[in-house]
């Protein structure tokens, strides 16, 4: 068993989670307050990765990232980025793949807050941005924690999308879930077990942490 797939997995999960937080928060804010007729369409698009087979998402992303496609060509010509079979490609794909896991908890957290909090802040002369950062987000910390942890854990568990657009390049795109598949293919069960146990323990601990904190158990034990 090598450590590089594990490290790569956590790098991918961390980068994805960080970018998604800043991307998903404005989306969740818009979704929870908008009265636009496009809301159901946007909500559907956001939720799509939950039901879509990862291979479908991976397939279309692979097509889009290909240097022969318009998107791929544009990225290559303008930024000099090659997304197919690269770490950056994995990050972009993971962002699409884990989008609902960040957007939905934050959106439901915001929707559950009394609208008078926002209104009070506006009548006190504060901008919508200040209201979001100083009032709304601090009052939905459990939802934010849920979003962050689910995104992180979900990205760790990614397989189909990574396989489609990342392939299996050591140190670049071979994440732990791919490494397990790889070891099993070559009948190297003990190495596969090493990765598997590691992932199992980490995801279990992470989820346990969320339920402990959000359930208020942490405060009870500390006091």
């Amino acid at each position: 068993m090598e450590w590089s797939p594990i490290i790569l997995t956590f790098e991918l999960a961390a980068v994805t989670t960080l970018i998604l937080f800043f991307l998903a928060t404005p989306m969740a804010y818009w979704l929870s307050f908008t009265k636009s007729q496009f809301k159901p369409i946007v909500e559907t698009l956001v939720a799509l990765p939950i039901v879509l087979p990862p291979t479908v998402l991976g397939f279309y992303l692979l097509i889009a990232f290909s240097p022969n496609s318009a998107v791929g060509q544009f990225l290559n010509d303008v930024f000099g980025i090659q997304l197919a079979f690269s770490f950056s490609g994995l990050v972009v794909a993971s962002i699409f793949y884990s989008l609902p896991f960040m957007v939905q908890p934050i959106q439901s957290g915001l929707s559950n807050l009394s609208s008078s909090l926002t209104e009070a802040s506006l009548t006190l002369g504060k901008s919508k941005f200040t209201t979001l950062t100083k009032i709304l987000l601090p009052n939905i910390k459990p939802s934010i924690l849920t979003g962050i942890v689910l995104t992180f854990a979900h990205t760790i568990g990614e397989f189909g999308v990574v396989l489609m657009i990342g392939g299996n390049i050591p140190d670049k795109t071979r994440v732990a879930s791919i490494a397990i598949y790889n070891e099993v293919e070559s009948l190297n069960y003990s190495a596969a077990n090493g990765y598997a146990i590691f992932l199992l323990i980490v995801t279990f601990s992470v989820l346990l942490l969320v339920y402990t904190v959000n359930g208020g158990f942490l405060k009870k034990w500390m006091s």
Partner: peptide, 19 residues
């Protein structure tokens, strides 16, 4: 905009910021 109106508003549910 509400921010620029010279108004103090006391809401029925008080709307105090819990944080």
């Amino acid at each position: 905009k509400p921010q620029q109106r010279d108004v103090g508003f006391v809401f029925q549910d008080y709307a105090l910021f819990p944080n």
